[in-house]
Design a protein around this nucleic acid. Structure first.
Lengths: 245, 245
DNA sequence: ATTTTTTATTTGTCAGACATTTAATTGTAT
DNA sequence: ATACAATTAAATGTCTGACAAATAAAAAAT
């Protein structure tokens, strides 16, 4: 990890890259302490501020953590699922909002991934997760619930569904997409009739999962996708009409 | 974006958070120029090095880019799919390697997601992507191909399959999982007979996709998953035996 | 009018200093 | 000898000030 750097970038980027490679390749293991900033500066032949910029880059990716004090320093960080969720959500949200990904595409991806979880969820669901789903379905039926709260409940329901698959890698991927789509979902206005329809679909999904019938859950998710896309199209048309009138 | 910061963290982390929130919420739009480092330092009431550390954090997440010179500065960056792929791959790789995710779990997630792409790929595959799949299948049949090259070809094949769904959000999610699993796949030794079996499954998948038969592709992917997991188990057992003898 | 030179602005880098946190060490009293 | 307090040392966090390098615009020269 000494002084073999690729040129053409900022020194801090080169140094961050060198340390990142060392972490990814396993030369630096979890909880291992990096040399102090002063030592790194000397090793790489740069000043301490430059080293610090490099370390901040790595900290932004949760690759290291720092600790002050006598035995402090920078330590290789074990990337937790929580940290990974956060990064995935940030990245997905920006990707969708900055690249004009249309709602149908995002929605298609989301439900495709969610259907992939259905058979596993049907096989492995726990009472705990079923309870969460039922509770959210109940909440969604409450009168006077704002559209935003309805959406938030929707997210919780679907995350419980995904988590029922008991595969953290799947949960981690789905978390990003589901959260990233929420801002788009929030633009939809749900009429009482829409909510009734959605709640019915949610109930069918929960029933299927509880009964171990993954195929039925998949079909219902497909129906929910079509319904959601139709609502989004209607909402957009309504906005369009308003803006012209 | 002035001076409302949450305490308890490094100043550079607080400032990075404030700017990040401004970007995510849309207060700062793509290609907009941030104030100069000197101005930011004054606005936030900190020194320039501290501002720079904050900006490097954001740069590490591809949220901004910087440019030197008279009209230079830090600009809000449009997060490209390429950048998002890179981050997703880094995060997924570290998540798997640092959290003792077992091969079966990672593999299950990968194939579950891949099966989700199959129906879409069957409906939308282009001649270009079919050609890539066929070419990789051919390559996999070549004699004298190293295990590593065989794996690399495997990745290319599966990425072509995923890209055939023509949904960039799906491609972006899959890229991370597929690439992250590769190091684990590389630990498998493929006998001639194994390769023949895998190539046959690949051919069946390509045929199904080309014929528009997503269901068949899904089934075959399922068979491939089971076969892959069995190979990995055998490889691990072989290693285990070696390490004891 | 075109080319060259200058200039101003901004990021990139460095050096040195001080503040703050934290653990280990030392000193002291019981 | 043990327990507690004070000191010390090491590390990150932050600031000041400076210079280098890149870049585009303005000014000057042809």
């Amino acid at each position: 990890m000494e002084t073999e750097l690729k040129p053409d970038r900022d020194l801090s980027a080169q140094i961050a890259g060198a340390i990142r490679d060392a972490i990814i390749s396993g030369q630096l293991i979890v909880d291992e302490r990096l040399p102090s900033e002063a030592e790194l500066a000397e090793n790489f032949g740069v000043s301490r501020p430059t080293v610090r910029e490099a370390l901040k880059r790595l900290a932004a990716q949760s690759l290291i953590r720092t600790q002050r004090g006598a035995t402090g320093g920078a330590f290789v960080n074990r990337l937790s699922y929580g940290d990974a969720y956060g990064q995935q959500i940030t990245t997905s949200t920006l990707l969708l909002s900055m690249n004009d990904v249309d709602f149908a595409t995002a929605c298609e991806a989301r439900f495709a991934l969610e259907r992939a979880c259905a058979p596993l969820a049907a096989a492995r669901r726990t009472p705990d997760q079923m309870a969460t789903m039922r509770a959210e379905i109940f909440r969604q039926g409450q009168a006077g619930l704002s559209d935003e709260s309805f959406c938030a409940s929707d997210v919780t329901f679907h995350r419980a569904l995904v988590d029922s698959a008991h595969n953290p890698v799947l949960s981690y991927n789905l978390a990003g997409v589901i959260e990233a789509i929420q801002p788009l979902m929030n633009m939809i206005t749900y009429s009482a009739r829409d909510r009734t329809e959605i709640i019915a679909l949610h109930s069918t999904i929960a029933d299927s999962i509880e009964a171990g019938d993954g195929a039925c859950a998949e079909q219902t998710l497909d129906a929910l996708q079509k319904y959601t896309i139709r609502l989004a199209r209607d909402a957009r048309n309504a906005c369009g009409r308003r803006s012209v009138s």
